[in-house]
Design a protein around this nucleic acid. Structure first.
Lengths: 183, 183
DNA sequence: TGACATCCGGAGTCGCCGCTCCGTATCGTT
DNA sequence: AACGATACGGAGCGGCGACTCCGGATGTCA
């Protein structure tokens, strides 16, 4: 991935690319991944052609949106690594993720269904999030705020589940996260 | 819903209806709700026309599949109400649901997105499940196996979340359900 | 067994959506 | 300013999938 020999984009091109990405995030989150590319284009104020030039496939667009989200999340996690209260940092981050990601599951699901290896597609973005989350987890465990047998991938699964559950009964989220606390 | 004046179906019609329902459950669970109606028809060994005669819309078909699943679940829950160990009965049921419903969320999601009031569409089936689950919950709480502040709708949300999480890391499911135990 | 209501199959219709193509506009450089 | 390189817009194409329609088959009842 990420070809090496691409010259810098023209200014308008870079601006449009960003607009499309934002629009896609918003539209897909709102109307679901079934929303048409044309709708994304309209929202971004560009033509369909432009969308497809930057993201050769709808699938690629979905992927890019996911990667962007993961990047933002990873950054947020890294910012929390130095916090005083490791337990609060960990659970605070989880809550933030759940809050921000109402529909991320749908994305990953759609990609997986399309035969994309989500793990691989996410690449660096996924690895970074994973790593930052791991640090947060380890520190919280050391502080006695999280059960010691919890693994990073379990935490991720809990996160995904909690996001989904939030759609049905937001009050269930803290209850689910309690499953991570020591008994 | 459920018109009153419909005469009994002809034998072959009833048989085909059941076949379609089974096929739909299987196909949608396997390939996702995006699977085509024709695929369902093929799986059921009937023509598309037959599918649409019994379920005038794809959405209606989805709905019917969901209702059938809920019905089965409710029956299972009712069978557990008289169990000796209320806590085991409760958690056993939850585990069974998670196990059986890998993709039920996707269904409900698809319906919700289609503008259907899932709650209303489920009707009796939903109410019955809800009620049986409530009994199970109350009894488990009385036995001290479940935290007393948990509500039925929270349990449902946990269930949905756990089902989703199971796709990512099955080992996270017991961890999530632990959130329902008293501290 | 005959006659009729009911049901079936699946080719065909219609609309939607991902994607392409190219004439035109904008950018960047000299 | 002027010219090549780059990017844009959006009409149009191809295909797919939900849904319809009707001639023929099958169940049902006397």
């Amino acid at each position: 991935m990420s070809a090496a020999g691409d010259r810098p984009l023209r200014a308008d091109a870079r601006r449009n690319r960003a607009r499309v990405l934002d629009a896609a995030d918003e539209i897909f989150a709102t109307k679901g991944v079934g929303a048409s590319t044309e709708e994304v284009a309209k929202r971004a104020g560009v033509g369909v052609g432009t969308v497809f030039r930057h993201f050769p496939t709808k699938e690629a667009l979905l992927e890019a949106v996911l990667v962007a989200r993961f990047g933002r999340l990873a950054e947020e996690a890294r910012g929390l690594v130095g916090a005083d209260d490791a337990g609060a940092a960990f659970f605070g981050f989880l809550a933030a993720v759940v809050d921000q990601s109402a529909s991320k599951n749908a994305f990953a699901g759609a990609l997986a269904q399309a035969g994309v290896d989500v793990e691989a597609a996410l690449g660096r973005a996924g690895a970074e999030l994973w790593e930052a989350l791991g640090v947060l987890l380890t520190r919280a465990q050391a502080a006695g705020a999280v059960r010691p047998d919890a693994q990073v991938d379990q935490v991720v699964a809990v996160l995904v589940g909690a996001s989904r559950a939030a759609d049905y009964a937001p009050s269930a989220v803290p209850l689910i996260l309690d499953g991570l606390r020591p008994r």
